[in-house]
Nucleic acid binder design. Structure first.
Lengths: 146, 146
DNA sequence: CAAGATTGACCAGTCAATCTTG
DNA sequence: CAAGATTGACTGGTCAATCTTG
């Protein structure tokens, strides 16, 4: 473990904690749900009309399968998504975003975006370079060019 | 919000989730405590003989003051640190690492380091560049050069 | 018996209120 | 009355076990 890599890792931890903290605070101040709700609703918005199976949704969200069940329970309770029985496999269900869910996304995004602009984008010298550095870490199996 | 910055942010989220997930899994597989314990013990190891006040420790750890109280409770219960009443201010206490705590740090670090090497350092093309990109985000008040 | 998803028991964190001392 | 720290009530997450269907 060389010192540069360790310093970079510490910087990543610090950057993540700071930006996430500010995003959550901004959402709360605006009377909006936490970021996890956005993370669930956004893949549903981009999915086909049928929606997504719980398993597919879990793959998009950094949460356990169990945790996703509870999270979807809460979001469904607010009417922002609905479960629909899967016609071809009666073990599971599809999750679909509702019009109210789409409206919530449209309310959350400006708040999220504003924090990203001010706390993240404004502080990063070269976002394209940052992306090049981090994507190989985010995507398993990819290794840096030798 | 330009597309590059958003992509970089997504890459940061993905990299963080992946590496943290692997670190926690490796620690658990080795029968060791979670990373949060390391985050508490390490500043104590670097502190003076007196240790650190709860407030100073909270500033080092990304957790609320309340959460730190409970976390320190648990770690103290395992004998890895101890609270000592502050002689000059009887409202609070100093927290000091114990020899068992130092031993635990020495057991945790190789596991932590191995994951950082394999999942983070090996995938980052240029750690020094990554650090330069992220430090302004991690440290509030610093802005990118115009 | 394996896979999708949920439920139960439990662990860890937050906010608001409290206790103690400066 | 302000500040350091803790406690109580609650929210949100995980693991192990369960239920249902393929």
């Amino acid at each position: 473990m060389d010192a540069d890599a360790l310093s970079a890792w510490r910087a990543l931890l610090g950057a993540h904690a700071r930006v996430i903290g500010e995003v959550e605070a901004a959402l709360r101040q605006s009377g909006l749900p936490p970021l996890a709700w956005y993370d669930v609703l956004w893949p549903l918005e981009r999915a086909s009309k049928d929606g997504l199976r719980m398993g597919a949704l879990a793959a998009e969200v950094t949460i356990s399968r169990t945790g996703l069940t509870r999270l979807v329970d809460r979001i469904e309770g607010r009417g922002l998504l609905r479960r629909h029985p899967a016609p071809e496999d009666r073990r599971g269900a599809y999750v679909r975003i509702t019009p109210a869910g789409r409206a919530m996304l449209r309310r959350m995004w400006p708040v999220y975006e504003r924090v990203l602009d001010e706390s993240f984008a404004a502080a990063v010298p070269d976002a394209r370079a940052l992306r090049r550095e981090l994507e190989p870490v985010a995507v398993p199996g990819v290794r840096a060019a030798g």
